[in-house]
Amino acid sequence: MTLLTVDTSDHVTTLTLNRPDTMNPLGAKGDGDAFAAACDAINADMDVRCVILTGAGRAFSAGGDIKAMKQRTGTFGGTAPEISDGYR
């Protein structure tokens, strides 16, 4: 499922985290790139005057993917120092 949906209407862009079944977690591979690309596109659109960041479903965002944290997979794979080094 696509992490983000982007909708622009009347100078307002709504950027929606779109993983409602898992409460819109962040941290999967490519999430940062997807977020950066969406922000770059919004910044380049001179007609946009306001951006709303929201989450689909019942939660804005659970934060990090709790299952990946528990299983130490994906972005959360490795020891604490290895995970920390991955964010530098």
Score class of each variant (00 low, 15 high):
residue 1 M to C: 02
residue 1 M to T: 07
residue 2 T to K: 03
residue 2 T to R: 02
residue 3 L to I: 05
residue 5 T to L: 15
residue 5 T to F: 13
residue 5 T to A: 13
residue 6 V to W: 03
residue 7 D to E: 15
residue 7 D to W: 09
residue 8 T to L: 08
residue 8 T to H: 15
residue 8 T to Q: 12
residue 9 S to L: 04
residue 10 D to Q: 10
residue 10 D to R: 07
residue 11 H to S: 13
residue 12 V to C: 07
residue 12 V to S: 04
residue 12 V to R: 11
residue 16 T to R: 12
residue 16 T to C: 10
residue 17 L to D: 01
residue 17 L to M: 03
residue 18 N to I: 13
residue 18 N to V: 10
residue 18 N to C: 08
residue 18 N to F: 14
residue 22 T to I: 08
residue 23 M to N: 10
residue 24 N to G: 07
residue 24 N to T: 03
residue 25 P to T: 10
residue 27 G to K: 14
residue 27 G to H: 12
residue 28 A to G: 11
residue 29 K to V: 12
residue 29 K to L: 09
residue 30 G to V: 03
residue 32 G to W: 02
residue 33 D to N: 13
residue 33 D to A: 15
residue 33 D to E: 15
residue 34 A to W: 04
residue 34 A to E: 14
residue 34 A to N: 08
residue 34 A to H: 01
residue 37 A to W: 09
residue 37 A to Q: 15
residue 38 A to C: 09
residue 38 A to E: 09
residue 39 C to Q: 14
residue 40 D to L: 15
residue 40 D to W: 11
residue 41 A to Y: 01
residue 42 I to P: 02
residue 42 I to M: 07
residue 44 A to V: 00
residue 44 A to Y: 04
residue 44 A to H: 03
residue 44 A to N: 10
residue 45 D to F: 01
residue 45 D to W: 03
residue 45 D to L: 02
residue 45 D to Q: 00
residue 45 D to A: 05
residue 46 M to Y: 03
residue 46 M to Q: 05
residue 46 M to I: 00
residue 48 V to G: 02
residue 48 V to D: 01
residue 48 V to A: 03
residue 48 V to Y: 07
residue 49 R to V: 00
residue 50 C to P: 01
residue 52 I to G: 03
residue 52 I to H: 13
residue 53 L to K: 03
residue 53 L to Y: 11
residue 53 L to F: 15
residue 56 A to V: 15
residue 56 A to Y: 15
residue 56 A to I: 13
residue 56 A to F: 15
residue 57 G to L: 09
residue 58 R to H: 11
residue 58 R to N: 14
residue 58 R to A: 11
residue 61 S to C: 10
residue 62 A to C: 10
residue 62 A to R: 12
residue 63 G to E: 00
residue 64 G to W: 11
residue 64 G to S: 11
residue 64 G to T: 08
residue 65 D to L: 07
residue 65 D to S: 08
residue 65 D to H: 12
residue 66 I to K: 15
residue 67 K to Y: 10
residue 69 M to V: 15
residue 70 K to E: 06
residue 71 Q to N: 10
residue 72 R to M: 04
residue 72 R to V: 01
residue 73 T to A: 12
residue 74 G to F: 08
residue 74 G to A: 05
residue 75 T to R: 14
residue 75 T to F: 08
residue 76 F to C: 06
residue 76 F to G: 01
residue 77 G to L: 13
residue 79 T to V: 09
residue 79 T to M: 04
residue 79 T to A: 00
residue 81 P to F: 12
residue 82 E to S: 14
residue 84 S to K: 12
residue 85 D to T: 06
residue 86 G to D: 02
residue 86 G to E: 00
residue 86 G to W: 01
residue 87 Y to K: 03
residue 88 R to C: 02
residue 88 R to N: 04
residue 88 R to K: 07
